[in-house]
């Protein structure tokens, strides 16, 4: 009963919430795109240069692995602040949707790269051997064997990354990133408008749920086992 009294649903201003939702979707979508491109690249290099793989290069692997680990060990909120100068140079601003995309990509790409590395490691070695025996080049093997065989697993990895990015975008609200997180923080927390908080959280839950369902559906569609 207490709770009911404190909630004033008239605080919920949908004309603010829809643009915020759109911002969240834009941030997530754009950063997911760059994260996938960058993460795939790093993940493939990590895999190929690791022990007993096609381009075994201990030094390259060690260095790349170190960079990935460092980026992954810094909490997102801190990373966001740390790379502000970089963001400013790249996007011209550290605020809003634009200012949020670089830190999101820098945080999520190393995470996704590790998922890619794991996915590629699970590809049957025999198939790679067969492709080599057929005279496939390394590039052929990456493109026609590894990426094809790992596809369901990579899609699952993209889904996990997308969900992680949703929660990162909410955190980006702390430093003026915009979107639903920003709304929840400014109205829900600073102005004690619990109703706004509830609506934004509900929207985030729906968003995550939809992403997961879409990802699972795609994984099923592409599974052949």
């Amino acid at each position: 009963m207490m709770l009911k009294q404190n909630i004033d649903w008239s605080d919920v201003r949908w004309e603010d919430i829809w643009p915020a939702t759109k911002d969240t979707l834009t941030m997530m979508g754009a950063s997911l795109l760059f994260t996938v491109i960058l993460g795939l690249l790093i993940g493939i290099i990590l895999f190929l240069t690791s022990r007993k793989q096609l381009l075994e290069q201990p030094a390259v692997y060690w260095f790349l692995s170190l960079v990935v680990n460092i980026l992954r060990s810094v909490p997102f909120v801190i990373l966001m602040i740390l790379i502000m100068p970089f963001t400013k140079v790249l996007m011209g601003t550290t605020l809003g949707v634009q200012g949020t995309i670089p830190p999101l990509v820098v945080a999520a790409a190393p995470f996704f790269a590790r998922l890619v590395e794991t996915s590629l490691r699970e590809v049957d070695k025999g198939v790679i051997e067969a492709a080599q025996a057929m005279g496939a080049s390394r590039w052929d093997i990456v493109r026609r064997v590894l990426l094809l065989e790992a596809r369901p697993s990579l899609i699952a990895g993209i889904t996990i990354t997308a969900v992680t990015l949703v929660s990162y975008t909410a955190m980006a609200g702390v430093i003026g990133g915009g979107g639903l997180g920003d709304l929840a923080l400014r109205y829900g927390y600073q102005r004690f408008q619990l109703s706004v908080m509830i609506v934004t959280v509900a929207l985030l839950i729906v968003l995550v749920q939809l992403l997961q369902m879409a990802g699972d559906h795609l994984v099923r569609r592409f599974s052949r086992k």
Binding site: D124, G126, V127, E149
Partner: peptide
């Protein structure tokens, strides 16, 4: 790589592309 195309190979566990 070129020479290998003149040798066909089959395997115990078939090693087909599952996808």
């Amino acid at each position: 790589q070129k020479e290998r195309r003149r040798i066909g190979m089959i395997f115990q566990h078939f090693n087909l592309l599952s996808m």
